[in-house]
Amino acid sequence: MSRFLRRLTALAAGLVFLCSCGISASRSVDVQFTAMDTFIHLTAYGAGASTALNAAQQSLLALEKQLSVTEADSEISAVNNADGRPVSVSEDTAALVDFALSMSRRTDGAMDPTVYPLVRAWGFTADEYRVPAQMELESLLPLVGAEQVDLSGNTLTLSPGAMLDLGSVAKGWAGDRLADDLKQAGVSSAILRLGGNIQTVGTKPDGSDWVVGIQDPDSEGMLARLSVRDCAVVTSGGYQRAFTENGKTYWHIIDPATGHPARTGLTSVTVVAPSGALCDALSTALFVMGTDRAADHWREHRDFEAVFVCEDGRITITAGLEDSFTLMDGYTEREVTVLR
């Protein structure tokens, strides 16, 4: 072959090689399955994405087995049924319980991992909704509170009658774990959707932010979108699970202090932060706190950002989201207040 042809071939081969690198970098891998009582949809890009996602699926299912309050042979179920006796748990579970307790303290009990007996009284755990009598709620209130839980190392003890439910932090926690696993596996661009809990790894392959929609609490559509990277987005809202009786609506976000659904004028709270577990815990807590207390909490800690949607449609966002928050068409006349 002449020198020219050889060089041309080499060049062509090189280009093909380069192109295929580019192609694999932007080709996406999707994994979808059901876990933690919700639809999981994971998307990752780049070499190794496929292996990493399959591993992620396995860890998620394993986590669920450990943490689920409904699965009879989970560690949490063992603790809940121990009737006051100490139970030994795995490090993962202990770490998560520790986190939940610290969030409970940080939010003055607005988020409480022991709120399960109250939620169950309203029928949300079995989808058999009912309005409990005030007396019933008052008898359950003493069972609720971080002080009911004793965690020493890997030994977990609950006061008799108290019950742990890590549902309000488990998905966020899992999201963090999966994101770490993916990063360790060399994936630098991924988006993990655990139901409505979103966790992002890096940016999209082209370097642009991920676009995450915030659902309108009153309808099926998205009322706004957030441009985010390398963080989690979690929403809590009464609309997620609620029932109506005698003209009044009751939702699943219970105020641990009163036993009743938290009514602070908010219909949804979306929290954005690097840690999914933090977002998960705070979204519930801030919903219970209401906009004013939540604003104070934000000013005090400033390690997260949030979007608050009120019953009357007004929206409040924290200053850090000013550039990444955009109202969708059809909602542009909504009043948006920026907290500073």
Binding site: I198, W210, V211, G213, Q215, V233, V234, M328
Partner: peptide, 10 residues
């Protein structure tokens, strides 16, 4: 075309 969301927080 409305923005194609990569994900929806709900």
């Amino acid at each position: 075309r409305q923005v194609d969301f990569d994900a929806a927080a709900h």
